[in-house]
Design a protein around this nucleic acid. Structure first.
Length: 642
RNA sequence: GCCGGAGUAGCUCAGGGGUAGAGCAGCUCACUCGUAAUGAGCAGGUCGGGGGUUCAAAUCCCCCCUCCGGCUCCA
């Protein structure tokens, strides 16, 4: 008896009846069989040991494919759990999935793991890998599974959840066994532990069971696994590269900002160079908003508690707000965590006509949020930060067009700062919500259409929206492929109600406007942090705090260096003259390590000829460049995007 | 907030019961130099803060603060 299977290229392959995925891989090629870790049968990822049926569409998955790596990492998680159970008898094990770039497993051993524990676990894992134990799949009833995991409370909870979701007891679950170790698991897995070529345990962390902070905290071990030693090394190198780009380190090295403990957690002070950069970002932001239909507004940092009561913040957001300030006369004030109530008050300050809509108010508004101490992370998560915040008041009928325009505007801004790859999340109506469902649906559809028309890939986060409206989050990919959330476009059906906002229609009736919140950078601080990591500190010319260092070869060239600096300044550039008592090489090195875009060396020949030695970022170097040419060239390098 | 790790000179780090060390940065002097580190000298720290143990604490113990890695939360 023979069966026929189809391969991804459409070709057919005849195999003996009873053939497995592994057989199929071998039939296609020896090297493929060696690299194979799993197989996709009719779209479903399965073990290589799966028995194929006549007519199956089959795709062999290798270890260097994303799906293959996930299998590899999942198996690595099993091996790690096996090692932990070997070394810590009585350990409880919870869940251990593959994640981006690695895997983790959560355990309860009655204490935390130490670095020595990790080494021991890693050694034990190496032994298990060397033993090349086969992974064997087994399907059992949930009753049987509950017996097998009688002393594993977390596993029992998972099994019970399976029964519940299936609506009946007695359904089946799959297990994977390899020599003495058994885990509840959907699979698939590697054929055997010996296929784990390269792995490393990275760190431990506390993690709540089921991600719920009211439930027990488990000990999580993170690890990474790759298809080869080379791939693992490349990954570890990538981690090192990420560390090198850490904006907190760059902020100190480049003298941009600092977080002195005296100030308080999560609060930055901006040194002259850092203030220059953020000033440039803010100038750009104000400029493009003014030329794209926005009106600039300004609001104070504190406001009466009553305002925050009316906006609902004291009800829903109080935890994240700095505590109330009580004044002598009993009046209570709050430091602002958001700008929206102020913009609403501006809208409400007089009667509004449909002719004024959409009304787009923009502010670089500094807000303060009392974030939980454990979440703070440099500029990326601070307690005081400045939002490039806008609130748009429009008619229901304008939502679609407005969102489209907003998205285009957002992408223009992000591209201006050098980002090229974008991804979006569309968060839809949650179970608890305010507003009319059909309005929600229309807005959600409008958000989706805007994304489609902009050609943006997006994932729908079903039910993840805030109770007051759907939203789009935009993410950028940085130079080393990391994903950062920046822009948020949030539709709001609640605030106009809270403040009874209205406008006069063409028929002279009153209608309630819809509000859209949006921040493009997210926050100026956060966005600058992302930029620093993206550019590894080497900001584009127009954002560099110092655009050119002028290096006099000897003391007698100081005068001419000053003249050159004057010429640059007159051309609107930001030069710095290095008058230090150091060699030329040392001054060059200093300028380069400070990531300045250009170095201008001036010596005897330049003084005589009115030239400079021009060295640009990226290694381009020329001697005897006429000052006018150098100015022209620098002007080009440092021109703002608009 | 929770779990773990760490705080020694401006930065990176060594020292681990017997009155504090290096490199870089800083300052001074010499050198006046053509594209990634010139040399010498000087100065710099109640070892994060408080309490305790001890004849003696940077070192051991307790509490607090800050930072780092996660969890949860989020711009």
């Amino acid at each position: 008896m023979a069966i026929n299977i189809t391969l991804p290229d459409g070709s057919a392959l005849q195999l003996e009846s009873g053939s497995t995925g592994a057989t199929a891989a071998r039939a296609i090629g020896r090297r493929l069989a060696e690299a194979a870790v799993a197989i996709r049968v009719n779209g479903e990822l399965r073990d290589l040991a799966v028995v194929l049926a006549d007519g199956d569409a089959v795709e062999v998955i290798t270890a260097d494919a994303d799906m293959g790596r996930a299998v590899l990492r999942h198996s690595a998680a099993h091996v790690m759990a096996q090692a932990v159970l070997d070394l810590f008898p009585g350990a409880q094990y919870a869940i251990g999935p593959a994640i981006e770039d690695g895997f983790y497993y959560d355990f309860h051993i009655g204490r935390a793991f130490t670095p020595e524990d990790l080494e021991a676990i890693e050694s034990r894992m190496a032994e298990i890998v060397a033993a090349d134990q086969p992974f064997e799949r087994e399907v059992v009833s949930t009753q049987r599974a509950l017996e097998i995991f009688a002393d594993q409370a977390f596993k029992r909870e998972i099994i019970e959840a399976v029964e519940e979701s299936e609506g009946a007891a007695g359904v089946e679950v799959s297990l994977y066994r390899n020599r003495g170790f058994v885990d509840l698991c959907r699979g698939p897995h590697l054929p055997s532990t010996g296929r784990l070529a390269a792995f490393k345990l990275l760190r431990t962390a506390g993690a709540y069971w089921r991600g719920d902070e009211h439930r027990p905290q488990l000990q999580r071990i993170y690890g990474t696994a790759w298809e080869s030693r080379e791939a693992l090394d490349a990954y570890l190198h990538r981690l090192e590269e990420a560390r090198r780009r850490d904006h907190r380190r760059l902020g100190a090295d480049l003298d941009l900002f600092s977080f002195p403990p005296e100030l308080g957690s999560g609060l930055a002070i901006w040194h002259p160079k850092g203030a220059t950069v953020r000033g440039l970002m803010e100038d750009y932001s104000r400029r493009v908003h003014q030329t794209h239909g926005y009106q600039l507004v300004v609001s104070p940092h504190v406001a009466r508690a009553d305002l925050w009561q009316q906006s609902g913040h004291l009800g829903f957001y109080a935890e994240t707000m700095y505590p109330l300030m009580e004044l002598d006369d009993g009046d209570r004030y709050v430091l602002k965590p958001m700008n929206c109530p102020f913009h609403i008050l501006i809208f409400a300050s007089r009667g509004r006509s449909y002719r004024e809509l959409p009304m787009r108010l923009f502010e670089l508004g500094t807000v303060y949020r009392y974030e939980r101490s454990g979440v703070l992370h440099g500029l990326l998560r601070a307690r005081g930060f400045t939002q490039d915040d806008s609130h748009i008041f429009c008619m229901e009928s304008q939502i679609g067009e407005e969102l489209q325009g907003l998205l285009d505007f957002s992408l223009m801004v992000l591209r201006d700062f050098g980002f090229e790859a974008f991804e979006a999340d569309l968060s839809t109506r949650p179970e608890k919500f305010v507003g009319r469902p059909e309005l929600w649906d229309r807005a959600t559809v409008a958000l989706g259409e805007a994304l489609d028309r902009a050609g943006l890939a997006y994932t729908v986060a079903e039910g993840e929206g805030a109770f007051y409206g759907p939203k789009i989050d935009l993410h950028v990919r940085d130079a080393i492929g990391r994903r950062w959330q920046v822009t948020t476009l949030q539709v709001d059906f609640a605030q106009p109600d809270n403040f009874s906002l209205e406008y006069a229609t063409a028929d002279n009736t009153r209608e309630r406007p819809v509000m859209i919140h949006r921040a493009l950078f997210g926050s100026v601080e956060r966005f600058l942090g992302v930029l620093l990591e993206h550019y590894a500190g080497a900001l584009p010319g127009w954002l560099a705090p110092v655009q050119a260092t002028i290096v006099p070869v000897a003391d007698r060239h100081h005068g001419y260096a000053g003249e050159v600096a004057g010429a640059l300044e007159a051309a609107g550039l930001r030069p710095e003259v290095d008058l230090a008592d150091d060699t030329v090489g040392e001054k060059i090195r200093r300028a380069l390590t400070h990531k300045h875009p250009a170095v201008l060396v001036v010596g005897d020949r330049d003084v005589a000829a009115g030239t400079v030695g021009l060295r640009l970022r990226g290694g381009e170097e020329a001697r005897g460049v006429a000052l006018a040419d150098a100015l022209e060239r620098l002007g080009r390098e440092c021109r703002p995007p608009r």
